[in-house]
Every structure is written in C-alpha cells, then in structure tokens.
Design a binder for these strands. Structure first.
Lengths: 210, 210
DNA sequence: CTAGTTTTTGACCATTTGGTCAAGGTCACT
DNA sequence: AGTGACCTTGACCAAATGGTCAAAAACTAG
C-alpha cells in the first residue's frame, strides 16, 4: 500500500516530496478554499503529476487535513506563551504582538484557518471544542485573576481574546480590503507598525486600570 | 432572450422568483463559498429546477454577483450613518452597535462578504478601492478632527475602523469558533450583550481622552 | 552490477457540474 | 375563450475533476 506516513521509516524522497506538496497545498487551499482547489493544481504547484501526489496522500481531503493539522500546531502557540507570572499589560501586549507577527509572516496559514472556520469548521470542530476551548478557559482564568487583583480594568476576557484574534488576523484574512482602503502608499511594514501602535493605544489603553 | 432585469418591466413572477433565488443563493454561497456551491443546490433551495434558475440568471457568476451586490448596499450603511455633527464617543459607540447588530441579524451576508474578501475580492476589488475607500477616507477625516479637538484619545482612525470591522464581524464569520469556545451555556443574546459591554469598556475606554 | 523496492506518470474512468434546448404548461390581456 | 408572451423542466452535452492502474523509471542495499 502507498501509505507514506506509516510505521515504516520515511525515506529521503518522501520527506522532500511531502513537504513540497504541503507547501503547494497551503497556497492553493488558502487562495481558493477546499472546493475551489484541484488536485492538478496542487500537483502542478508541487512540480509533480497528480497520480504522484495521490501516491503520497490518499485523497484531496487527506492533503487538506495534513496541511490544516500542521497549521493548527503553530496556531495555539502565541496564546500558550501568555505567562501567568508575567506583568499583565505586558503579557497582553506580547500576545497581540505575536499574533500580529503571525498574520504578517504566515498569512496563508491564517487564511486557511479562516476558510475552515467560515465553512463551519467541518474538520476541526472537535479541536475547537476541546483543545482550544480548554486553552482559552485556562488563560481566561489567569486574566480574570489579573482583573481581580486590580491589574487590569474590568472586562470579559473571552471577548478580549476574541477581539485580539479578530483584529490581528484581520490584517491577513482581509488583506485585500486593508490594502484597498489604505491605498498603495502605505507599505506592509508601515501597516503593521501602525497597527501595533493602534493596539497599544486603544486596547492596552482600554485595559489599563484608572 | 431571457434576460429578466432588462428594460421591460418585471412581472410579478419575476419579482417573486428572483427573490427566492437570491435568498437561496445567499445561504448556499455563504455556507459553501462560490466554488463549493452548485446551481442544482441553489435551485433546490429556491424550490425550482436548474434550467428555471438559469432562466432568471444567465450564469452562476451572475447569481453570485447579484447576491453580492445586494449585500454590499446594506454593508456600507452603518458607516455612512456616522454623524460628523454627533458626540464623538457616542457616534463610535453607535457605529459599533450597528455593526454588531448586523452581525447578529445578517450573519449570512457577513460570511458571504468575508468569503469574497478572503478569496481576494475578485469581483469587488474596484468597489473596495473606490466607493469603500472614499467613504472610509471621509469618515477618517471626521475622526481625525475629533482627535484634533481633543474629543478622542490620539489614534489612527483607519485602524480603528479596521478593528471595529474585525471585531464585530468576527461574531458572524467565526461563529462556530465563538460558540465552541464559549460552550453551549451562553445564549446568542447573552453573547451579543457581553460583546457590547466589552467594546464599551475596552474600545470606548481606550478612545476616551484622559 | 543486480535484485528488489520505491517513485513516477500517461492513459483512463466515473461522477459532478455549468449550461443548453426543445417542448409543454401557465399567465395576462382582450 | 383565445392568443401571444412568459415560465418551467426532462433530457442532454461537454468540460472539469477526483481517483485508479499498469507499466516504466529511479533509487538503494548487498
């Protein structure tokens, strides 16, 4: 059987080709969504024939699962890194910064994720309700404590986290719109600097106890 | 020729059927994206045969264009209603409220729009760069004046508007995720109340001059 | 070098899907 | 009721697409 990632050790070629496929697939799925992406398209992007692609992954859905799974891993990191022992406003600021960097440096992953959620998260519903929810619950408790200690202005941490997700990912997911509105004059670098400054003023400002 | 919306006056049946089609198409496109939606699916949703659908709209893309165009109209209203003569913090608060209500009451439209942008806005690039940009530029000038008058804390209004779009639409576009994280316990009504309260604290708080 | 394994692909197939067409049914107006 | 325009659809078509298969090419271990 052609199952590549099985018990047997992976060959050099397998490692290389699978990596090429996942890279091409990420671009394709992020740009066109699951339904809008063709195996031929991914194969072309990966520089191989469609049967060759299907030799490494049994089906289109399996390619999608693989690239989505890989994305999910890195997706949780920024929130995990929120340190309960740190200085509250600094931790929030750091979290926003990390999320914003991710939008800037890995926009395709962001769009892939957005597409999956928009479609109703058919493949990762359980991750959202399990791993993600648990992680968020944990961090919400931390933030609640910070609020109780008077280190942050009173607010609902769930919605703070939603707001951080929404605003930071917006720059990747709605990139076209952001560019259109800002016009060609603003460079990507400036955009992210402005965004950082904005969050520092408004979000952090809004969270600062008075 | 079958062109329905031409010079000739539209018949009663045309009005009815086109409305049914657009409603079904909105659901289909919002749920499955352009590529993931089939004419048969829309036709079934509208309670008619595929050839009958194609009698009213010449192609799948034209159906999509129609439903997207209709959505765009209502999409700009909340920002248009931002009143330069109003009290700044109140105007911002009102804008947030209107956008949030739209997310709650017209989530399908929000998702349709999100899908189009995510895909690179192939059909509405020009609207974004034209109508939308002009409107935003105009309101940004208003907000800048408010800042200059010391009525709002200094900030970049472009990013304020992005933040408002992102956070409010998040509740429609990423609904599945929001639900998953909050768990079944929180009703839709409560969710929107909490969100409103959050924005009042953090965004409005962050914009209040000190 | 050789044998066995892994990798690669052209040709092919079944299904789905956007769209056509001709024929029949329905509606509105006189 | 009659007639012309409007509406509806079953049957059909061509293209696109997910996936198969057998046979050839390339690689690896001994």
């Amino acid at each position: 059987m052609a199952r590549a990632a099985e018990t047997r050790r992976r060959t050099r070629i397998q490692v290389e080709k699978e990596s090429q496929i996942l890279a091409a697939a990420l671009n394709a799925f992020a740009q066109n969504g699951f339904a809008g992406t063709t195996l031929d398209g991914i194969a072309a992007g990966a520089g191989m024939s469609k049967p060759n692609l299907i030799y490494y992954f049994d089906s289109k859905e399996e390619v999608y699962r693989a690239v989505l799974g890989r994305t999910l891993e890195t997706w949780l990191e920024p929130l995990i890194a929120l340190d309960p022992a740190g200085e509250p406003l600094n931790e929030i600021r750091g979290y926003i910064r990390r999320k914003l960097e991710m939008s800037r440096d890995r926009p395709q992953e962001s769009r892939l994720f957005a597409g999956e959620i928009l479609a109703g998260a058919p493949l990762i519903r359980d991750v959202l309700e399990g791993e993600l929810k648990d992680l968020v619950d944990e961090k919400v408790a931390v933030i609640r404590q910070w609020v109780a200690d008077g280190k942050l202005a009173p607010h609902d941490p769930y919605h703070l986290i939603f707001a951080i997700w929404a605003t930071t990912q917006h720059y990747a997911d709605f990139d076209v719109q952001v560019r259109a509105v800002l016009g060609g004059s603003v460079s990507e670098d400036d955009r992210y600097k402005e965004a950082t400054a904005f969050f520092d003023t408004v979000i952090i400002g809004g969270l600062t106890p008075r």
